[in-house]
């Protein structure tokens, strides 16, 4: 099974993401296909699965960004399951993103009475931490000396 991926490149100095507009196709093996079909409805679990998959990370390093070893990236879309809001959320972002984060970060009750700007500020604060968890570091492979 082929899955389409889109990525964002993280600029550590500016603490900013830039969208890579290209679409990349990754071939899942049988086991990965099974896991994908189970996790596709639970967005963050799906993300974690790929983030922790060594074969997926090798594919990125070897075929997607071979010249970016040491760099950092994040997944934007997996077969149109979108994670873009994590990297590009603004206080003016549409209500659907706003509600998603209010739920995710358990911003509720008294906070509901506050203005969009204030809640948006709180979402951005929490996103700072969450984004770091989503970043995939393209580490150089360490070849052990067997001699």
């Amino acid at each position: 099974m082929q899955v389409k991926f889109e990525f964002a490149i993280y600029d550590e100095a500016l603490d900013k993401f830039e969208l890579d507009e290209k679409i990349y196709s990754y071939e899942l093996n049988e086991e990965e296909t099974e896991t994908y079909s189970i996790l596709k409805s639970v967005d963050l679990h799906l993300y974690n699965f790929f983030q922790e998959s060594e074969s997926f990370k090798s594919w990125i390093k070897d075929e997607v960004y071979p010249n970016m070893i040491g760099g950092k990236i994040a997944i934007c879309d997996i077969n149109e399951i979108s994670f873009r809001r994590y990297y590009f959320f603004k206080v003016t972002s549409a209500d659907v993103h706003y509600e998603y984060f209010k739920k995710l970060f358990k911003i509720h009750h008294e906070i509901d009475w506050q203005g969009r700007e204030e809640v948006g500020k709180e979402i951005l604060e929490q996103l700072k931490i969450k984004r770091q968890e989503l970043i995939i570091e393209l580490k150089k492979d360490i070849v052990e000396n067997e001699a």
Binding site: F88, T92, S93, Y98
Partner: peptide, 9 residues
Amino acid sequence: VMKDFEVIS
């Protein structure tokens, strides 16, 4: 980028 309309307060 977000593939959605912004909201203006």
